[in-house]
Design a protein around this nucleic acid. Structure first.
Lengths: 208, 208
DNA sequence: AGATGTATGTTAATAATGTAACACATTTCA
DNA sequence: TGAAATGTGTTACATTATTAACATACATCT
């Protein structure tokens, strides 16, 4: 009997997202098989962790050859792909916002970036990396119209809280925040911060 | 007797970095005291965890008022600041690189960004957000000259591996990688990836 | 064909985290 | 002044996550 998705712990699911990405790279390189310790190195964890995760999802590899990149990809994808793709808006089309669009592309597995917003009228109306940029005063109406449920904040720190509240008010349930300021939002909203400075400080700590 | 740094687990030290940052924000807002459950909310963990961490470092707060932002900041800073500031170079002065410089600023506690590098001669020679930009062919000599030990990679995916190897070859011990590709480096080098696409996918997963 | 080496699948042990509980200190309010 | 309310400091416990260990299976090589 196949293990239901509900039985898979969230941490494992999150690592599966990582594995999927890594497997894509490996496939692109033409790799056919991969060992648990190789995946572990790439994912910054341990071989035991990888094997345990794959055990949890009921995937089996071959001793001496490892895991088939193709089969494992298919298996992981099947587990991750059973929800509708999230619909994402980016707010703030400055250097960082444009870099994010260019870097990420507008099409990811499970995620589609549908709109960008900016307060600077010079940046609106055009299409950046495949994503149309609207004036920020249309935020609420466009979010509703396009069925956006996730937001990326690439605005100055001073505006982050306000924009976040406006997004949450029209039904956005998850926010990825690049502004170096903590957001205070109602409990229903999932917030993930990317604080580059803090990341650096933590690496500095490890390397001391 | 004061608890020695060696007794503090790494996980706690990492959270201290987060607390320090949050305390700075609170101080900037004019907050004088903070409760464990407030810090917990901002740090995305629990009040018990905060109290435990502060217990470990031997910090004491006041019942009914919580912790003095100023005193706690000083205490945390004393623990974190006992190593030389890390010396950082940014490679890739495109949209993302410039955004990082502008966002982070070049001065962080424990971290100083001393140089930027780019292959485009148009971007070199000038100063971006307080950081001088050198041509990438001078990478090795400048890294040695400036005593750089940490690198930020904001280059296209195709170049990331090569640049990372060049950095590692001249003694860089930690790399923060924004390129959406996993790096393979000798074991001595600490690598932290910021894969924006993957972050999005993970939020999408939580909100499903 | 048999021995050897290696990586898997799984279980056991360890570590980390979350939850609950409660005595005590401090402020507030009557 | 004294009682009520609240949050700390601490311990104990439950739960979860990570690491280590090891028997088993599969290829390879002689």
């Amino acid at each position: 009997m196949k293990r239901a998705k509900a039985d898979i712990p969230l941490k494992t699911m999150e690592r599966l997202v990582t594995y999927r990405r890594l497997l894509q790279y490996l496939a692109a390189e033409g790799r056919v098989f991969v060992f648990s310790h190789e995946l572990a190195k790439l994912a910054n964890n341990t071989a035991a962790q990888v094997r345990r995760d794959l055990m949890i999802i009921g995937h089996h590899g071959s001793p001496t050859r490892g895991y088939s990149v193709r089969l494992l990809t298919a298996h992981v994808e099947r587990l991750l792909a059973d929800h509708e793709p999230s619909r994402v808006a980016l707010v703030g089309a400055g250097n960082l916002g444009r870099a994010i669009l260019a870097h990420v592309g507008f099409q990811l597995p499970g995620v589609t970036i549908l709109a960008a917003f900016d307060s600077d009228e010079e940046r609106t109306g055009r299409v950046i990396a495949g994503v149309r940029c609207y004036p920020v005063r249309e935020l609420e109406s466009r979010v509703v119209e396009l069925g956006i449920n996730l937001g990326i904040l690439a605005v100055p720190a001073t505006e982050a809280q306000e924009i976040a509240e406006r997004l949450a008010a029209v039904g956005v349930v998850g926010i990825l925040n690049f502004a170096p300021v903590p957001l205070r939002l109602p409990n229903g909203v999932v917030v993930d911060e990317i604080d580059i400075g803090m990341k650096l400080e933590r690496i500095a700590l490890c390397c001391q």
